[in-house]
Design a binder for these strands. Structure first.
Lengths: 210, 210
DNA sequence: TGACTTTTGTAACCTTTGTTACTGCCCACG
DNA sequence: CGTGGGCAGTAACAAAGGTTACAAAAGTCA
């Protein structure tokens, strides 16, 4: 664990902090598709990502979903931070997008470390900053873009995060994450295929050039 | 200034911090409609709101606007915080919604105070939390609600922030903030009037019951 | 193989939202 | 007092996206 920790967080954290993380943090692996956090659940630990990716989803009262953003290695979940400190319930759902390795830090260390370690403080602020920027980006997409543009952006984000130009998703799954209907996604994907930007197959989409 | 500061932040901040703020902070008044921050501008100070309200707007590359949320007394701007620490440019526009009193803190104090004062740290985290929650709320609105619901929510937020059930806005101004067209706003407002929820007048909307 | 399920393609239609165009109204100001 | 500019009402139309329905293709499994 300490090995992987250092690979990802070593220039960032001072040694004393790394040692503390090693002592207190709990190493965990989650498989693709596994749920890490559900809406309304109490938050007891915050994750530091070592590898893989986690998608963060929002849901409204009718059960309609929307993908907010992805977390990748070196990231942590600002929502979790936020909820920890406020002792409130989670506002989001977190699902592993890939097989993921992470270290869980119990929340009671949060307050202590933010006082004690400057590097931790910077990390936490940096995380908040990143997440705010990602939320802004999400808002830009849903407010200013039409569905075809949003879909394109979705495909781009997906291949970036999985590092694979073949996307293993059904149209229905994409529709959920963009909060639209399967028929609309199929329609727009077919357009993209006709433009030669993608190649459609059952359960997968090969991205050619977008 | 110290008077007003204490009224709003006294239970929150320890005395030593209040004294520092008094020494270093710059008291400022901005009139309704005045611009406090423009997109792309560098951030050199963060505001602590004493009274009034500030609206935070996002703009896309075509100049289309969207209202993100309001800041009120006791609030500070997490975007500013965020930008300060990262030394980056502002991603948002800030405009006074009402006549507003605030104290500007130079950003170089940020890092120092977050290390030194626990109460400041909590305040900053609390601010990030609030702003993240407001961003989530904004996302919910634009992703899950139809325009009529969004308009209703807009009117509710507006009367809450101004503490006045008469809204002094033109349909065009509302259209900008919701990122839609004037005709659509007029249409939906007329519906609300027919339902007896509001009374329309030139340059103002009287909210009766929503 | 054959029955069944899941996924995708597509047409037809509806609703919501955006656009254009024109009208009348109110108000400020010369 | 009249005229010009900003504001609001409305109709007619266009475009985007959502819904329903159905069929075909692909996979699954007994």
């Amino acid at each position: 664990m300490i090995q992987k920790l250092k690979e990802n967080y070593s220039p960032l954290f001072e040694d004393a902090l790394l040692t503390e993380i090693e002592k207190i943090g709990v190493y965990k692996e989650v498989a693709e598709g596994e749920k890490l956090m559900e809406i309304g659940q109490y938050v007891t630990a915050m994750p530091l990502l070592i590898s893989g990716a986690i998608k963060i989803l929002r849901e409204d009262k009718d059960g309609d979903e929307l993908l907010l953003y992805f977390l990748e290695k070196g990231d942590t979940c600002a929502m979790t931070l936020s909820c920890c400190l406020g002792q409130t319930k989670s506002e989001i759902r977190a699902v592993a997008e890939l097989d993921t390795q992470l270290i869980m830090i119990p929340i009671n260390k949060m307050e202590e470390w933010t006082g004690k370690y400057k590097s931790w403080r910077n990390f936490v602020f940096e995380s908040y900053h990143s997440r705010l920027m990602e939320m802004l980006d999400t808002i830009d997409s849903i407010a200013f873009l039409k569905m075809d543009q949003r879909l394109l952006k979705y495909l781009q984000d997906k291949i970036k995060v999985t590092n694979d130009d073949v996307i293993q998703s059904t149209h229905q799954e994409i529709a959920y994450e963009l909060h639209t209907s399967r028929v609309v996604v199929s329609r727009l994907l077919k357009n993209l295929e006709n433009l030669g930007k993608i190649k459609l197959n059952r359960n997968s989409i090969q991205v050619i050039s977008i």
